[in-house]
Simulated scan of single mutants.
Amino acid sequence: MNIRRAVQADLPKLLEIYNYEVVNGVATFDTEPLTLKERQAWFDAHNVGNHPLIVAEADGVPAGYATLSTFNSKAAYDSTVELSIYVAPECRGRHVGRELMGAIIALAKEDPRTHRVVSIITGTNEASIALHKKFGFRYAGTITEAGFKKGRYLDVGYWELAV
């Protein structure tokens, strides 16, 4: 597995990975698949400042990706970033998420502009919660019934890591 910065040519596969979760899961609260045009703005907001976008590549194809994104648009929050990791369904269970987590946290620690990494995790996402615990994230609280998807209200937990 090769971990590297995302390039424009990766965007269609990254969108496919994300849209799979939109349609089939609850890790994102988007409810309708995004288009390439819609996802382009997201792509362009990464690999600038303290917002890296990295890809885990297996056999020359993105198997998953990780980002550090704007946590809140107010300037005082600039040193806090939101972590997201998505893994292609066919690559789950192969430690792609763990490799991406290690690499994105290393980038956060190397960047003096980043002080805190925050993840917002759906309460039912046991695998993500376990991964965050393994990397030393601290549980910071829950917003109950924060979103409605797949016919039910879902809680979200906030997890943080000081870097």
Rank of each mutant, 00 (worst) to 15 (best):
V118P: 06
V96F: 09
Y139W: 13
R116N: 06
T124D: 15
I104N: 04
R92H: 09
I85G: 06
Y139C: 12
G123L: 07
H132I: 06
R116L: 13
K149D: 11
G93V: 07
K133S: 05
I104H: 04
A103W: 00
A140D: 13
G93M: 07
I105N: 01
T114R: 00
E90I: 07
K134I: 09
A146T: 06
R116K: 15
E99S: 12
P112T: 11
C91P: 05
E145I: 07
A88Y: 04
A146E: 07
F135L: 05
H115R: 15
E126T: 13
A140M: 13
I104G: 05
A88W: 06
E90V: 12
K134D: 14
I105Y: 01
F148P: 08
K109D: 00
I129Y: 10
K133M: 03
G151Y: 02
V118A: 10
C91W: 14
G102M: 00
S79P: 04
P89M: 11
D111F: 06
E82G: 03
C91Q: 14
T122I: 05
I143Q: 13
P89L: 08
S79V: 08
D111T: 02
S128V: 02
K133A: 09
F148L: 13
V96T: 06
V118C: 08
A130S: 14
K133E: 14
R92A: 11
K149P: 11
E90D: 15
R116Y: 04
A106V: 00
T80K: 05
I85N: 03
E82C: 05
V87D: 05
V117N: 08
V117H: 07
S128H: 02
Y86N: 02
A127Q: 13
T80G: 07
K149T: 06
A146M: 15
R138L: 11
I121L: 11
K133C: 12
V87W: 04
R98N: 10
S84A: 15
R113Q: 14
L131Y: 01
E90C: 07
A146N: 10
R98Y: 08
K150W: 00
C91V: 07
L83M: 12
A88E: 05
P89K: 15
A108N: 01
E126H: 12
R113Y: 03
L131T: 04
C91L: 07
L107F: 04
Y86D: 01
V117T: 10
G93L: 08
S84P: 06
M101A: 07
V117R: 08
L131V: 01
I104A: 00
T114D: 08
T124L: 12
E110G: 15
V117Q: 05
I129E: 12
G151V: 07
L131P: 01
A130Y: 12
A127D: 15
F137K: 02
